[in-house]
Amino acid sequence: MIEVSGMKFPLDRKYYTKNGAHIWLSVEDDIVKIGMDAFATEMTGLLTFLTITKKEVKSGDAIGSFESAKFVSRLFSPIDGEIVAINEMAMKNPRMVNEKPYDSWLVAIKPDNIENALNSEHILGTEEEISSWISQEMKRLEEE
């Protein structure tokens, strides 16, 4: 686990970063569970709505939406595959994602190719990569 700007990032998983996404990925057997990281939940504020609308997904595709601060944002898939499970508890109570982002997976995806699923320049996993990425993200927000 590392802590950057007061936010925690467990190192037992990876992070998808394309186009400002803040999605964690955790591999369990041949399934990848994904969720929102501490930066996303901290910065966007209290989630009031979460929905998943896709089944077959491609990396970078919008797979659903969430609302916070009266703004409906898209949720993006980090990998190609098929959504095989949705965490209905999180859909019904999005606040749990704010409270425990790393325990609150959103969907489980069966990747088209498990070997290559996490090989992407947009998926980070080392302490240095994550630390540098979050620092850049903080700087970007300060400039807004």
């Binding site: 910065m43 504020g45 601060a69 703004f71 944002s73 807004e144």
Partner: peptide, 17 residues
């Protein structure tokens, strides 16, 4: 457009601006 550099990423910044 989302890629417009003048568009804040965070909703609270977006509305305020």
């Amino acid at each position: 457009r989302r890629d417009n550099k003048d568009v804040p990423a965070l909703p609270k910044h977006f509305f305020k601006k």
